[in-house]
């Protein structure tokens, strides 16, 4: 859809969202003094970036349970470049993404030929492979991981400071939050644009019928790898920022559980909606935290609620919007 065709209510919605994220949330936190919320919200933003990638692979008809592998890879690329080569964090961020995309092309070329549960099973193994690789390689420092990673430094172009050195900031939590929020907004803009451009239509044709897609002249193998590479790029970015926040990375920083969660965020939010994974991440992450009052029953209630939600709303929470219009 061309920008000129964006309807006014939709524009207002986007504006309200931006104001909420960049003005209301910081204002609320400053008023209540709940600084710990920043960490939670930063995590939600970053997880939703990785989930956006998973969602894109769903969009070409593949169940991706391997995003944790790319988050871990991206984190290690950034950590190694910063600590061992003294490269600025801001440069390692895109490098981590590009590295993950390149790796995903190599892995994707053979495995994207698989469909359905077979592809899902292979991706499920990927996270474990990434963890074991990180344990085994000398450059990743094995189980000890990489620690004491410096905070992101100053980013300046032509002597003009765009982003100040995080270490000199009074409140790096706010800075991380803003960074993650900006990344999330940009990611979903990109995703929205992909889905609503011809590229997205081709992805949908792939999701619905690969053979027909090939017979109308779509290079299905190339398109699958492209979508998977973009997906992994998002995973790498999110991983790199997580590492910058925790200033450390271990082989167990991202495990199979995380990969499964990324998939759940997409399912819960809705596979048919671009902003589904964002909402899904927010609901599940906060839901889990809120349920901590239930102590030992936390997991039981959480998983019960998940099952119930999938039964009642198989197309995700956002499908509630469509129901109002009387459509199925």
């Amino acid at each position: 859809m061309a920008p000129s065709r964006i309807s006014t209510p939709r524009l207002l919605g986007v504006l309200a969202f931006l104001v909420g994220v960049f003005v209301l949330v910081p204002a609320f936190i400053a008023l209540t003094g709940r600084w710990d919320f920043y960490y939670t919200l930063t995590s939600v933003a970053l997880l939703s970036v990785a989930a956006a990638g998973v969602w894109l692979t769903f969009y070409i008809g593949r169940i991706n349970i391997g995003q944790g592998a790319y988050a871990l890879t991206g984190g290690y690329v950034s950590a190694i470049l910063i600590t061992q080569h003294g490269i600025s964090f801001w440069l390692t961020l895109p490098l981590a993404g590009v590295f993950c995309a390149a790796v995903s092309v190599l892995i994707g070329l053979p495995i994207l030929r698989l469909r359905g549960v077979y592809f899902a099973m292979v991706t499920l193994v990927l996270t474990e492979v990434a963890r074991l690789t990180a344990l085994a390689l000398p450059i990743t420092n094995g189980a000890k991981g990489i620690t004491s990673i410096p905070l992101p430094g100053e980013l300046s172009i032509f002597g003009l400071t765009i982003i100040p050195d995080f270490a000199t900031l009074e409140n790096p939590k706010l800075a991380f939050y803003l960074m993650a929020a900006v990344l999330m907004v940009v990611t979903y803009l990109v995703l929205w644009r992909i889905v609503n451009s011809r590229l997205g239509h081709l992805c949908r044709s792939l999701q619905q019928n690969e053979e027909l897609s090939a017979s109308i002249g779509v290079n299905t193998a190339m398109l699958r790898v492209l979508a998977y590479a973009i997906s992994s790029f998002f995973g790498g970015l999110a991983g790199a920022i997580f590492v910058a926040i925790s200033q450390s990375i271990y082989p167990s920083s991202f495990v199979v559980q995380d990969s499964v969660n990324f998939m759940l965020y997409c399912f819960l939010g809705g596979l048919g909606y671009v902003f589904g994974p964002m909402l899904g991440t927010l609901l599940l992450y906060f839901g889990w935290d809120l349920l901590s009052v239930a102590k030992e029953y936390q997991l039981l209630i959480y998983s019960g609620a998940l099952i119930a939600l999938m039964l009642v709303l198989p197309n995700g929470v956002l499908s509630l919007l469509d129901r109002k219009g009387g459509r199925k």
Partner: peptide, 30 residues
């Protein structure tokens, strides 16, 4: 064998893929 969840018109439009002159990047940036 059709694209089931698209409308008739969307089905036909997406099938014009072969004739697109713009690159995928061109489509992304409009």
């Amino acid at each position: 064998t059709i694209f089931k969840s698209m409308t008739v018109r969307e089905n036909v439009i997406v099938s014009h893929h072969l004739r697109s002159k713009a690159s995928l990047l061109g489509f992304f940036f409009g």
